[in-house]
Amino acid sequence: MLTGYSIAILGGDARQLEVIRRLIELDATLHLIGFDQLDHGFTGAKQEALDDVDPKELDAMILPVPGTNLQGEIDTIFSNQSIQLTKEWLEQTPEHCLLFTGITNNYLTNLTQETNRTLIPLFDRNDVAIYNSIPTVEGTIMMAIQHTDFTIHSSTIFVLGLGRVGMSVARTFASLGAKVKVGARKSEDLARIHEMSLESFSIKDLKQHTHDCDILINTIPAQVVTAAVIQNMPNRTLIIDLASKPGGTDFRYAEKRGIKALLAPGLPGIVAPKTAGSILANVITQVLIEEIGERGNE
């Protein structure tokens, strides 16, 4: 239980609603910041502005999956209020205050280092990334069906990157009957692709392979789908870029070539916010309960 534990939830999307529900079940004291336009309230949680919350009382803060932008601003779909996380505000929190985010950036990393607060980027954890790959794959299948006039079965599909998402994407599309080719940089990843009975190639040779590509799915957060790569693609090719913004595709050149290219980060929050929120809630509550236990043993 989290009785007596004070937590601020700052902005976010529908995924945060599942986190809120789970924390209420565990009897935490919740401060909801950036939820004033939410259609329904939560019994046991207080909707407030950031200035109305006493940071000295907080044991933890939960940011949206994207965290902040490079100016420290936090997005929320449930309010028109501006939420800004500053050094002056954060350093008023207790030293044990944990700060959860999905991903981090230079602003957020530097801010927590300067204030000596513990930052927990949830998407850096293998368990979160692997669980999250399930709704990501389902969303990718949905986009592939919506934006093509041919079946996945028998299509030639390129997957770039064999990370936690790339592996799930490649395996699932292969199980749907597609001819899947996977590009990677590391020799051990190329060996794993071979072990999975899929065709492998080195990313540096990508442009030599895309002449027969029906769908290209990128998971690499670097510019790998360049103009030279796109130039060699058939006009029918669909590009689905799952990498975090700005993605790994030259979208300008793709549009010029008449090739449909879709940037689709954060698919779990779009196609399955309840499941994606439950994944976050499970990990956050696990970390909080473990942290309480450690503090109690000090």
Rank of each mutant, 00 (worst) to 15 (best):
R164V: 12
L198C: 05
T219R: 13
N235L: 01
V229R: 07
I217V: 15
M167D: 08
D214W: 02
L206Y: 03
A227S: 14
R192C: 11
V169E: 06
G163K: 00
K204T: 07
A174W: 02
I215N: 14
I240N: 04
A174G: 11
K179P: 03
Q223F: 06
G183F: 03
P221C: 06
A184G: 11
A178H: 04
L242C: 10
M167Q: 14
A243Q: 04
E199Q: 14
S200D: 13
A254Y: 00
H194Q: 15
K204I: 08
T249F: 05
K204H: 07
M233I: 07
L198I: 10
V225L: 06
V180R: 03
L198G: 06
I230Y: 03
P246Y: 05
R236D: 04
I217A: 01
A228K: 15
G177D: 02
I203Q: 15
D214A: 14
E188M: 11
D250S: 13
K179M: 12
I220S: 08
S168N: 06
T210P: 00
I193A: 10
I240D: 00
R164C: 06
H211R: 07
G247W: 02
Q223A: 15
Y253G: 10
A174C: 09
S197L: 14
T172C: 12
I239D: 09
Q231V: 07
D212N: 11
I215A: 09
L190F: 07
A191D: 02
E199G: 14
G248D: 02
G183D: 06
S200T: 05
C213R: 01
R236W: 01
N232K: 15
V165Q: 05
G163P: 00
H211W: 05
